[in-house]
Design a protein around this nucleic acid. Structure first.
Lengths: 105, 105
DNA sequence: AGGATGGTTCGATGAACGTCATACTCCGAA
DNA sequence: TTCGGAGTATGACGTTCATCGAACCATCCT
């Protein structure tokens, strides 16, 4: 069995909410991790961003409620995915621009 | 005579700062106004966004310091311009995605 | 059943933010 | 040189936000 979290429909995505969700270092790191298009399971090695789990939970909620991510619950595991196609359909270029920032310090 | 405000170089643009600058309704409206590529003079009719002038000054400072806009001072007039090419060079697609949101409520 | 594990929720706290009114600076015109 | 207008800087105020620890919930394994 697997459930899903409620998340706004593509047409309901609000630009301000999306931008606010992206405008944080931790959340930006999460988005970059999800940039490969795969669903990533929380609680794995690659999820260590230097914050407590309650804080991470908070960040993931913001991303989800803004419609940036998708969450599928499978038992104790939460699989997070970037809603790249939806974002691209709604705000063409935006996510590409965000992810293009990989190579700098 | 005309001076300019200091503004970060293209290579120094920080994604988080740019996103934070864009993640506000008033500033988003400003960016949309500047979306035509022209330099707009503050204090004209089209600059009425329902906030006091000190608040608007604050918002314009944030946009400028993040590198989203350019300001040229000519006497008492301040001409604001969107740094579209620079942003496009640094984060390809981002600004296009933001400006593509024109047509919705 | 019981314990360990993966996530969430709930205060609390300190920092950052948006807003405004006021005071100030600078320029141009009378 | 004096006055008014355009814009900035400062300080205050209330709100939102990121962060954490602790309590809680659900699931898997023994």
């Amino acid at each position: 069995m697997s459930t899903e979290y409620p998340t706004p429909a593509t047409a309901e995505l609000q630009l301000v909410d999306v931008l606010r969700a992206l405008a944080d270092p931790v959340r930006l790191d999460v988005v970059r991790l999800l940039g490969d298009g795969m669903a990533h399971c929380k609680g794995r090695e690659d999820w260590n961003f230097g914050v407590q789990k309650s804080t991470m939970s908070h960040h993931l909620r913001i991303l989800r409620e803004a419609g940036v991510t998708d969450v599928t619950i499978d038992g104790r595991d939460h699989w997070i995915r970037l809603r790249r196609e939806d974002l691209e359909a709604r705000f063409p270029g935006l996510i590409t621009g965000v992810l293009s920032d990989r190579a700098e310090g």
